[in-house]
Amino acid sequence: MKEPVRKTKHPYLVGVAIACVVGGYFHLVSKEKKFPEPGPNLEYDISELLEIDEVETAFEETGQIVPDFDEAKALETDADGNLYISGKNTIAVFDRAGKETSRIAVDGTPTCLELAPNGQLLVGMGDHVLVLAPDRSPLATWTDLSERTHISAIAADEENVYLADGGSRIVLRVDYDGTVLGSFGKADEARDIPGLEAPSAHFDVAFDNDGQLWVVNPGRLGLERYRDNGDIVTTWYRPDVTRLDSFSGCCNPMQIAFNSKGRLITGEKGPVRIKIFEVTSGSFEELVVGSSAFHVPQQIGDLVVDSSDRILVLDPRKKAVRIFEQTRTDLARKEAAE
């Protein structure tokens, strides 16, 4: 005789129990790690390269100037300690205390500024130069300077204006009428000129305190000194990402300036570092501020040194001009003793 099939009195409870077991199983399975985490071979670790600038410095950030306009890009200072900051359609002038005193309207965003010895303000506008008279009224516009002009820096003495043309990777020598008198920086084996390499539009020129023209060769990570006629006088290059006394990255230093003692102040991008060098030999002297004070990676907009030897750095990420001053007397004494 066939036995009767035993039926549960609570079929719904059995169904719920089975659903819980199945659900729990899939929940646990989904918690399992399906994909491995990337191992060290897939990681680009720059921590060791950043550690090289973890040293005591004699400088501190003592203040900030925050302009209230967009696209702040270039800085310039005058003998009275006034600071010029260029931005979108404007150049604002701040006094030493950081108070805005005047504004000059311009059409576009200036890429660089230079106060000429005759009081004119030379404003690099990318593909042309705007000349403002000492009263800051428009005086002239210099155009048709080169085939692919991108003016990234200007240096002026009594007779000539030197324009760093990052677009054509040359330095243009121009008179105060805007006439191009010559250019240099192209590779020339016969004259022992290696050629300026500017992989990006950061390419600076500046006069030292003796009136010698220094040009950054960013692709070679160093500086070159030129005569008026384009002859090269001296060069030094410091490419080494692992050393503090050298420049990191593909193209540095992106900004240079000189302080009242004639020491070279350099600004690097990527890991931002501000350093001081002896300009003739290219020997590293000290670090002003290391990468820990900035975001990594980032660029700096511009770098100038004012009449009080304060180092002013335009930080595009903070949209502020950051002021660094030497404050540590112990290092200063040590330096004086040396």
């Binding site: 990681e43 680009y44 720059i46 992989p199 990255g249 990527g270 990594v296 990676p297």
Partner: peptide, 11 residues
């Protein structure tokens, strides 16, 4: 890896 390296040290 190349993306990070180019971003930190290059263009």
């Amino acid at each position: 890896k190349c993306v990070k390296a180019c971003l930190v040290f290059g263009n």
